[in-house]
Simulated scan of single mutants.
Amino acid sequence: MAEREASRTAVLVCQARAVADGRMAVGRFSDPIALQLLEPDEQRLVDEVRAGARPKSFGPRMEYEMLSTTAEVLAARTVAIDDAVRERGAPQLVILGAGLDARAWRMPELAEVTVFEVDHPASQAVKHVRMGERTALTAVRFVPVDFGKDVLGAALAAAGHDETRPTTWIWEGVVPYLTSGEVAATIAEIARRSAPGSRLIITYPTPNLVYHYGRKAMDVLLSVSGRTSPMAREPQRSSWTPERLAAVLRERGFTATSDRNLLTVATEAGVDGNRAAFLGSGRIVVADRS
């Protein structure tokens, strides 16, 4: 992924969590830090969506709809991920492609957990600026990794990650942009640093033509209106069936203990919306190492 575009995607995800906070999955989802991490121009779109003020002009309307859709997806998958993190209670948490994730700042359950945030050095520099003087609720170790040059395992070891202790891994919103081979290689690297009792949480897309062409249409419409989609230069490189991903995990010593459709998660969590095609194409798998 191009770093500039990766940062724009991180902002979109942060905006989506800000839109959902206090409005979607109330009692199950909360991210009051998200809005604080956005610049004023980024906050304005969040305010519009939260107020339900749909713009009349074409370009702003497309941006509005993209953020509305993303908010529903993010609320659902955040609820599922946070529940899985709380349930396992491992002493270490690794967030791969952390972006502007605020779990270490908003989840009191992580107070005794060492959190490792893995991301590109440039993305982490931006996050440091946006976080400012905010104090995390637990120990956070930033692990700069350029995946085109660096080895994940070596970077984590240098940051103090203990491969002999259980780890919960969050791999959220990254798999679609990797090839099948890159996904398998990353899972193998994770497995090498996962002691018994570790847990791997992955969000991933399933083969879905409605979602595929819907996203392409959104990119085209944004381009026609003079806007640029945050994901325009991040083509989807892989999709997975639950059976195929479970097999890859099993080969690396993980057992898929839960694999749910995000639409089901959204319904159970009380995420009200009408983006069933987008929610229905995404899944979240929880895999454990015994």
Rank of each mutant, 00 (worst) to 15 (best):
R86F: 07
D101H: 09
A25L: 08
S238E: 04
S225F: 10
G153D: 05
A111Y: 13
W240R: 01
L93F: 00
M231C: 08
M231K: 01
K149Q: 14
G27R: 06
L100Y: 06
D47P: 01
A157I: 07
R283Y: 06
L38P: 07
R28P: 05
P91K: 07
L279A: 10
R233N: 14
E72M: 09
E3V: 15
S238G: 00
S57M: 08
A188Y: 05
A256Q: 07
S7T: 10
T179Q: 10
H120P: 06
F116H: 07
Y177Q: 05
Y211D: 02
A184G: 06
K149L: 14
G282R: 00
A10S: 14
G22T: 11
A111C: 08
R252C: 13
G273S: 09
T264N: 12
V113S: 03
A158T: 09
M66Q: 05
L178D: 05
V286K: 03
D101Q: 09
L263T: 07
I170G: 00
V265C: 02
H128A: 13
R86S: 14
E3C: 14
P166Y: 06
T206D: 07
V49I: 04
Y211L: 12
A75C: 09
G273D: 08
T167R: 01
V73H: 00
P176R: 06
E48V: 05
D101E: 13
A185S: 12
P144I: 11
A185P: 02
V113G: 02
L100H: 02
R250K: 15
P242T: 00
M107T: 13
V46M: 04
V143F: 10
H128S: 08
E3G: 14
F147T: 07
R8Q: 10
P40G: 15
P235F: 11
N208S: 14
V46E: 00
R77P: 07
G214P: 15
V129Y: 11
Q92H: 13
D288R: 11
E268N: 09
A287Q: 12
V140F: 08
R244D: 11
P166R: 03
G181E: 13
R106N: 12
A80S: 11
